[in-house]
Computed example of a mutant assay.
Amino acid sequence: MPEFDTLKFTRSGPIVDVVLDRPEAANGMNDTLTRELAEAAALCDDAAVKVVTITGEGRFFCAGGDLKAVSSASSPGAYVDGMAQDLHRAMSTFARMDAVVITAVNGVAAGAGFPLAVSGDLVIAAESASFTMAYTKAGLSPDGGSSYLLPRLIGLRRTQELMITNRVLRAAEAADWGLVTTVVPDAELPTALRELATRTASGARKSNAAVKQLLLTSYSSTFEDQVAREAQLISACADSDDGKEGVAAFLGKRRPEFA
């Protein structure tokens, strides 16, 4: 397994677990963490990986950018730009890889931690988790893909409220708004994450990858382009080993055994 300074990276079969590991700094993002997250994402973009989980060590998921590191940089703007470029590369890789990404929000998700938390294909939150943008409090503007993700997930008006007023959303509210897939008691989060990851990893990788590809293009495509893409992907799935196994299992009234 690769060794990182700010992340825990472990792999068990087709599942990779990534843990933000700067608990002494509320898992805040400095230049090392964002660079290592991009490196970890590239490692996860592998044909043998079916599920990636992302969570935080300790009480926080991620408090966003490490403002102490920013303020001590000789050029704060250049430092932030470097962090943003690495973070965006990581998030783009997670979004476009075939593996399903599951984020487990174990505590506060603030600043860039907010879009990272809700960028998962599936999002589990502990009951005590909370979400806030917090950028304008520090005289900064949003990053981490938040201006792309949030309007698509919750609409423009709610996004404006979050970004301008820095409203804090509790986990139940985030679920009600559509930012979170499910909320579980704090003590049950690790078990719920493991069960969901294991169940998802037992599915068909090519099918899940097709879902991700289709949803990424659904807002930017015409209807005709999108249904053409659907036809292309479903036919490729039908010709795949997993597709043949899935159809055979359905007809045979048995559980499929995907690769």
Rank of each mutant, 00 (worst) to 15 (best):
F9E: 08
L116S: 04
R167A: 15
T34G: 03
R170G: 14
V180Q: 00
T103V: 03
S221R: 11
D143Y: 12
E257G: 05
L149N: 01
E257W: 05
A134H: 09
S74M: 14
P76L: 10
G28N: 11
R89D: 07
K68C: 08
L179I: 00
E195I: 07
E230W: 14
A112H: 04
G155F: 07
L216K: 07
L193H: 07
G203L: 13
G111M: 01
A99I: 06
D143Q: 09
R158L: 13
S146K: 06
G178Y: 04
T217R: 13
A138G: 13
A90S: 07
D225S: 14
L122K: 06
G111R: 02
F258Q: 04
L215D: 13
R170Y: 15
I54A: 02
M1F: 15
A38D: 04
S146Q: 09
S235P: 01
V101H: 02
A69S: 12
A25F: 12
A209N: 05
A204D: 09
A238D: 09
L162D: 13
L216E: 13
G56K: 02
K68D: 12
L196Q: 04
P151H: 15
A25D: 05
V70H: 07
M29T: 09
R255Y: 11
L179R: 00
C237A: 11
A172V: 06
E195F: 02
T103S: 10
N106L: 02
S146R: 04
A73W: 05
R255P: 04
F9T: 13
P256W: 14
L162M: 11
S71R: 10
A73K: 06
R152K: 09
G64P: 06
M91Q: 10
V52D: 00
A171E: 01
D98K: 10
L189Y: 14
V180T: 04
R157H: 08
G56I: 05
E188V: 14
E195N: 10
A210L: 00
G178V: 02
